[in-house]
Design a protein around this nucleic acid. Structure first.
Lengths: 312, 312
DNA sequence: TAGTGGTCTAGACCACTAT
DNA sequence: TAGTGGTCTAGACCACTAA
């Protein structure tokens, strides 16, 4: 059951199943309490709705959670309608109702489904598009973003050649196995030290020159069944593999960058003199719900490349 | 004189002075030619407008420039109305009609001025806000962004302490003088080698520890009268000084980052051992119209700090 | 030709700020 | 209370795509 709280609607209607409860929220409503019970299909049925009025300036704070129903109901807070719609669409993206690369329903369809105007759906999708979760294509529709696309290849890779256009790196995996999470990795993945993680070590080369040496840690509980064979066999971006095989989409990442010098091991693997300065990039990647699903520690050779960043 | 080309307006009206020419643009219009002449007040007067029709699929390409009037008329291309409004507002920001920190006219006022709906102005301002050129404040109005503000201090500085919150750096200027632009600097500033530039060298410290060693080059033609005294005297962000004293706002920057090791000079100034790895950050900053107005080469000590970047 | 997203309008009510 | 930006709607026409 969906429950949307809206600012600007005089109608009050209550529905069940996959439908909407429109509530006339006037500013004098202080509390909304409602009782829910499970119906035959595992959904919720509204047993009662209580509202109490109070001072006009007081607003309504998260009635769904107050009712203890936050676990299953999509936790509608008193946020703008388009934000609630955005959250609902995001939930469908997360649940796999529409898979990466697929067309999502048109704005008009979504507007009908959620019983809001097209403009409100549009604003929700505008934000999703700005966050690169979906891609709009005029005349065709709106598509779920995917890592299987030329455009997406360099979305998370900021290392550019000093001259010429960005190229696809050539991949050499040197290690890929399951191991127990060290404390620092576990902390960044929000799991427990010693929990199972899948570890990958690889070298990426441009024009035959080893340029990136990186180590990846992926939570074993999420990426069950990942193996050396699968990693070796797959040609293409790692995030595309994870998306297709495990249904996990990387949608955001934070990188912390430092300067270091090459130690013996790095120098050998990157075919550089000892103590060559390198960029150390520590990335944590997130999927829906701000859940960390990858730690990646990379060393970038910046002799003929640079890390490019736009500020505004 | 303003000339707006609009997609969705059945009215065709022609006005003079600070007003608008609404043109009914149907898709069969192939060319728009108009002759302009100067009026008594230095503005333009429309002498004639010619349109020729053609195949429906052909669109109109920049009639103002075709008419040779691009120098004074705000070069209205056949872009969406809100983009044209955005360009006009940007022009007013650039010209200083509204100064940094000041309130700009309300959406309704701007809508009246440009003879468009409030919604169209809103969409234009939405984009300006997303680009950090203006700041919206509900109930108060829309303000021109400024570097004189706590929030803006870290807009262009991505170096964060490993522990604790970002702090204000302490500044030590070691050099500030006029000199002739070296070839590489000149190229990045889009000026000629040997042209006058103002050069600043300074050290920024956090908690007394020298952390950033940087050199700045500013085009002398733009920042006339900049002096060692002025730079030493001013306490606060460099960009705030440039904004206030010279009316030049930094609105965008591109950074290229590499790893290097400290040479003798850097090691001494940063009080580090020789060959300590450092981040080398080469920044080019831009003002309105994508005009480069600063080259900044910084060395960041990343022993207790890191360069933080969000990817999405 | 039908369907999609893109632009534009007009009008309503809201929350927030200042007077 | 008046004025601002924020949300929401309904409806129109546009450009683009594909059948």
């Amino acid at each position: 059951m969906l429950l949307l709280l809206r600012q600007n609607n005089a109608a009050a209607s209550v529905g069940f199943g996959h439908c909407i409860v429109n509530m006339y929220l006037m500013s004098y409503i202080r509390h909304v309490n409602y009782q829910l019970s499970l119906d035959a299909e595992g959904g919720f049925v509204v047993k009662s709705i209580l509202m109490s009025s109070s001072h006009p300036s007081l607003s309504i704070a998260n009635p769904a959670q107050a009712a203890g129903a936050s676990a299953t109901v999509p936790s509608p807070t008193f946020s703008p309608l388009y934000q609630q719609i955005k959250a609902l669409i995001t939930k469908s993206l997360q649940s796999g109702e529409w898979r990466p690369g697929e067309l999502i329903p048109s704005e008009i369809e979504l507007a009908n489904r959620f019983k809001v105007s097209q403009g409100t759906v549009r604003k929700a999708i505008d934000e999703l598009s700005a966050e690169n979760l979906v891609v709009r294509r005029q005349g065709k529709g709106t598509f779920v973003a995917t890592h299987h696309e030329a455009r997406a290849q360099f979305r998370f890779l900021r290392l550019k050649p000093d001259v010429g256009d960005a190229q696809y790196p050539e991949n050499t995996v040197t290690e890929a196995r399951r191991l127990r999470a060290p404390a620092d990795i576990a902390r960044q993945l929000d799991i427990k030290t010693g929990d199972s993680v899948f570890f990958v070590k690889r070298i990426q080369s441009f024009d035959g020159a080893p340029t990136i040496l990186e180590e990846l840690w992926l939570p074993g509980s999420i990426f069950k069944g990942l193996s050396l064979e699968r990693v070796l066999q797959y040609k293409g971006p790692m995030y595309a593999l994870l998306e297709t095989e495990f249904g996990i989409q990387m949608i955001r990442a934070v990188e912390n960058i430092r300067a270091v010098v090459a130690d013996q091991s790095a120098a050998e693997l990157l075919m550089l003199p000892l103590n060559t300065p390198l960029l150390s990039v520590n990335r944590v990647s997130f999927t829906y719900g701000d859940k960390a699903v990858e730690v990646r520690r990379s060393l970038y050779v910046t002799n003929n490349h640079h890390y490019q960043n736009e500020l505004s």
